[in-house]
Computed example of a mutant assay.
Amino acid sequence: MTILVTGGRGRIARAVTTRLHAAGLPVRVAGSRPAELAAPTGVETVELALGRPETFATALRGVRQVFLYPEPAGIGALIEEAGAAGVEHVVLLSSSAVLGPDPEEDPLADHHLRVERALAGSALTATFLRPDAFASNALGWAHPVSRAQPVQLPYPDAGVVPVHPEDIADIAVEALTGGRLAGRALTLTGAEPLTFREQLAVLADVLGREIPVERITRDEAERQLSAFMPAPLVGSLLDFWQRADAEPVAVADTTATLLGRPARSFRQWAAEHADAFAPGRTAV
């Protein structure tokens, strides 16, 4: 019973693959550029490109479960091929954005929602993992922090519940290897609500140096983010931060509630990634 992990270059996919392989389970890793996949020794890598249906059959041969990164382009053909290949269960890495207001009008939410709806309308059992803010989003602050510059934010007091990526991987593996989570839609958070200002205070404590915070306008934030992010996604992100500023995100499903073990904290994530914020750091 092979488990196929798609989006093999992603951080969550790599962590899921490592766990499955360490458990001795047959796992295959797929991506649009298989030569760039860094899979553990002995793990098969294959091409799977949603824009190229001819890659589906080989990737899905002998597969019964799939860990799926969301991509609406070609999802219908992939689901059809998966059913024909005997796939029984898909664990989708979705997003809590699908639960926001008017998700069809939100580019980020709609991207995930279309995949969720395609799976929900199929004969496959589907588990939706809907993580909220990742703890690793804090890497976006590495550039100013490593240069002792203020972190500029339009909504520094937006309240989120950052989830450690390793917790998401643990929950994904449980969904792939056990029956308790099959067919459920799970909103994933960490266990501790933190504003952006509070996250930076934790990071400052871990690093042993002050991190100044500077409030900027939404327009200025939009200008900055647009330098490396498509405009529709910038608007989606800023809308989320604005909502979280007015009404902080609540704690939802965690490894404690789902797996019976404590959730990893933002402080733990910060300690693990302190090097990314080191003075003079040029890349994350």
Rank of each mutant, 00 (worst) to 15 (best):
M1H: 12
M1Q: 11
V5H: 00
T6H: 05
G7A: 07
G8W: 02
G10N: 08
R11T: 13
R11H: 11
R11I: 09
R14A: 14
T18E: 13
L20H: 11
H21G: 01
A23P: 12
P26K: 08
V29H: 00
V29P: 06
A30D: 00
R33N: 11
A35D: 11
L37P: 03
L37M: 02
A39R: 02
A39L: 00
P40N: 10
P40T: 03
T41Y: 09
G42C: 05
V43K: 02
V43I: 04
E44T: 09
T45Q: 00
T45R: 07
E47R: 03
L50M: 11
E54V: 06
A57S: 07
T58Q: 10
T58S: 05
R61C: 08
R61W: 02
G62Q: 13
R64C: 06
E71R: 15
G74L: 03
G76F: 13
L78G: 06
I79L: 03
E80V: 08
G83C: 09
A84G: 11
V90P: 02
V91T: 03
L92T: 03
L92V: 07
L93V: 04
S94A: 09
A97C: 06
A97M: 04
A97V: 03
G100P: 02
P101R: 09
P107M: 00
A109N: 04
D110C: 11
H111K: 05
A120F: 06
S122R: 05
A123V: 08
L124F: 05
L124K: 10
T127H: 08
P131Q: 05
A133S: 11
F134R: 01
S136C: 08
G140S: 12
V145I: 07
S146C: 01
Q152G: 15
Q152Y: 06
L153K: 06
Y155D: 06
P156A: 14
G159Q: 12
V160Y: 09
P162L: 04
V163C: 11
V163H: 05
V163W: 01
H164D: 12
D167K: 15
I168N: 07
I168H: 14
A169E: 14
V173M: 12
T177K: 09
L181I: 10
L186E: 11
T189N: 09
A191N: 10
P193I: 15
L194A: 10
E198Q: 15
L200G: 14
A204E: 15
E210M: 13
E210K: 13
E214L: 10
T217N: 13
R218G: 13
D219K: 13
D219G: 10
A221Q: 12
E222M: 15
E222L: 15
L225A: 09
F228G: 10
P230A: 04
P232Y: 06
L233C: 04
L233T: 06
G235V: 04
G235A: 09
L237P: 07
L237N: 11
D239E: 13
D239C: 04
F240H: 10
W241F: 12
Q242M: 11
Q242A: 15
A246Y: 01
V249S: 08
A252V: 08
A252M: 07
L258W: 05
G260L: 10
Q268S: 06
W269P: 00
W269I: 00
A271E: 12
E272K: 03
H273N: 10
H273D: 07
H273P: 05
D275C: 07
D275Q: 08
A276T: 01
A278Q: 00
A278F: 01
G280A: 02
R281N: 11
T282W: 06
A283P: 10
V284M: 07
V284Y: 14
V284I: 14
